[in-house]
């Protein structure tokens, strides 16, 4: 169960998760560098989302190791993994409908995360400035007072990205960030992602190949819980196995 210590930001080794005997992720190993943008692609059911679930603690690994800065994540609770510096965006927008955009971002601000910290939390100038700065980045500066449930689908996706940004994670995991977006929203999101991936590592799951080519340096192709291919986009695209199971469709 103990993985080796490495210089990588994230080292996933021999990771396996089995649901009633079905191995959704099977003996998977991969490494992510500091400031690397990694895109995970693969057909439906390949285990892409499960890998993110395992890293962020939503699903518990059956065996194997996930080390973040040489710290074992498989033993930590979700909130501890977040505090270690891992942020996760879910496939469907996961935001707080009953709260305003401002409050959504404020809750994600990394301070006062204990019970008493939350009771004594003050909305001071630092918090306001940071929330406004993030809102500007995610194109929602004029929506701060609006209840999140009234946002459009694309705006909700941006809000969730903003909620992650305000945490300032070292590793950002995005599950299909442009899914369900209009063309114009997609362009804006690509621009947004380009800006936010500069000073951190990012793992992105995406089906939109144009988008993938646009942002990816290195691509991992998953198939049936295993790695089918890994490397620069051009190599992966030329790989006959990848074409057969995924790109050919």
């Amino acid at each position: 169960m103990t993985g080796s210590n490495t210089d990588f930001l994230l080292a996933v080794e021999a990771l396996t998760v089995s649901f009633d005997g079905f191995k959704a992720v099977d003996d998977l190993s991969f490494y992510v560098d500091e400031r690397e943008i990694r895109v995970i692609i693969g057909p439906n059911g390949a285990g892409k989302t499960t890998v993110l679930d395992l890293i962020c603690g939503k699903t518990r690994a059956t065996s194997g190791s996930i080390k973040f800065r040489n710290r074992e994540l498989t033993k930590l609770r979700e909130n501890e993994i977040v505090q270690a510096g891992v942020g996760r965006k879910f496939q469907t927008p996961s935001i707080y409908d009953d709260l305003t955009v401002f409050e959504n971002l404020e809750i994600s601000y990394p301070r006062g995360r204990t019970v008493f910290g939350a009771l004594t939390f003050r909305r001071d100038a630092a918090v306001r400035e940071r929330v406004e700065e993030i809102a500007e980045t995610i194109f929602l500066a004029d929506q701060l007072e609006r209840r999140a449930e009234f946002l459009s689908h694309g705006q909700k996706q941006w809000l969730e990205i903003g909620m992650l940004l305000i945490q300032d994670p070292d590793l950002l995991m995005l599950d299909e960030p442009v899914a369900g977006m209009s063309v114009s929203e997609r362009v804006k999101t690509a621009e947004l992602l380009h800006r936010i991936i500069r000073d951190r590592s990012v793992i992105v799951i995406e089906h939109d190949m144009k988008f993938v080519e646009d942002i990816a340096r290195k691509v991992t192709v998953l198939h049936q819980g295993r790695i089918l291919a890994e490397g620069p986009m051009s190599d992966v695209k030329a790989n006959p196995k990848v074409v057969e199971v995924y790109l050919g469709h």
Partner: peptide, 12 residues
């Protein structure tokens, strides 16, 4: 509304 999201915002 979203218990999981609260966890992934770093709260116990």
């Amino acid at each position: 509304g979203k218990e999981d999201r609260v966890r992934f915002s770093g709260y116990n």
